[in-house]
């Protein structure tokens, strides 16, 4: 095998990254399954000792979650209802063992079309923070992931955190629903996530809705979002979900489900998610 390097501080990590030619290991929940029956032969940088990559913080602009924060940490964090969707997604990742090891950054960088975290991150307008030794930049999560197993991450770069813009904690809410062929340890057939904000008259002032596992990269549904803005949170809101809202999706046919089924199920889950918003006290 190659080298194994487990730095404790970010600067050391970035320096080693710059030297190139290494795979990143964090929770191992994608790394090891890709190497069943094989001995890892590549150089490895293990980022799990870098404290700067972990944790959840409230900032002046909103919230920040370190890229190496585990799903279990997300579940346990004290976050406003805006993050209920992300927390629900965290509880649906694998089983408890996977949630204790798997990281939010790994989920995004692995870029699976069925990544459990993606719809919720999209629905929270998350930005990815990317660092290289000489600098740092941000981009929206939706731009970062390019396709199945493809991201914008370049050699020498690493995702260090996710940033979430501030919303009124009293008047915002996030939600998430996952459909799989069984309970626990299941790859999604369809996922939907959304976040919504409203004013003192319960009028929706903004919302973001995303569908996962129905396209190469989870998709925001702009048409539906626009239709909801200006509506009052009340019963029957889900009637606004029309088939036309789902036109941008391109689900696949496979052993788990047909494309047509995924498309239809996405509509069902969206109506359920939005009905819940309408019925919120």
């Amino acid at each position: 095998m190659g080298d194994y390097y487990r730095p404790a501080v970010l600067s050391d990590l970035l320096q080693r990254l710059e030297a190139g030619n290494a795979a990143i290991l964090a929770g191992g929940t994608d790394f090891y399954p890709a190497r069943v029956g094989r001995h890892p032969h590549e150089n490895i940088i293990d980022i799990t000792a870098v404290q700067a990559l972990k944790g959840i913080r409230e900032t002046a602009d909103g919230w920040t979650i370190g890229a190496a924060t585990t799903w279990a940490d997300v579940t346990a964090a004290e976050l406003p209802p805006l993050f209920d969707g992300l927390r629900a997604a965290a509880r649906e990742v694998g089983g408890r063992q996977i949630q204790n090891a798997g990281t939010i950054g790994g989920n995004v960088c692995n870029a699976s079309p069925a990544a459990d975290g993606m719809p919720a991150l999209l629905s929270l307008d998350a930005e990815v923070e990317i660092q290289v030794r000489r600098g740092c930049h941000r981009m929206p999560v939706r731009d970062f992931v390019l396709g199945n197993r493809k991201t914008q991450l370049e050699a020498g770069e690493i995702v260090t955190a996710f940033h979430f813009p501030r919303r009124d904690p009293q008047r915002s809410k996030g939600s998430f629903l996952k459909l799989g062929a069984r309970r626990y340890l299941v790859i999604s057939l369809v996922m939907v996530a959304g976040s919504v904000e409203w004013d003192s008259d319960r009028i929706i002032t903004s919302c973001r809705i995303a569908v996962g596992a129905c396209s190469e990269v989870a998709e925001r549904l702009a048409a539906l979002e626009n239709r909801l803005i200006g509506q009052k949170l009340s019963g029957g809101l889900e009637a606004l979900v029309g088939d036309d809202c789902l036109a941008g999706l391109a689900p696949i046919d496979d052993v788990r489900a047909t494309a047509a089924y995924r498309q239809e199920a996405a509509g069902v889950l969206l109506r359920r998610l939005i009905r819940e918003w309408g019925e919120m006290a």
Partner: peptide
């Protein structure tokens, strides 16, 4: 004290 899959945990960790 927390449950993990030991098959996904690197010795170095």
């Amino acid at each position: 004290g927390e449950q993990v899959c030991s098959c996904l945990t690197a010795a170095g960790q």
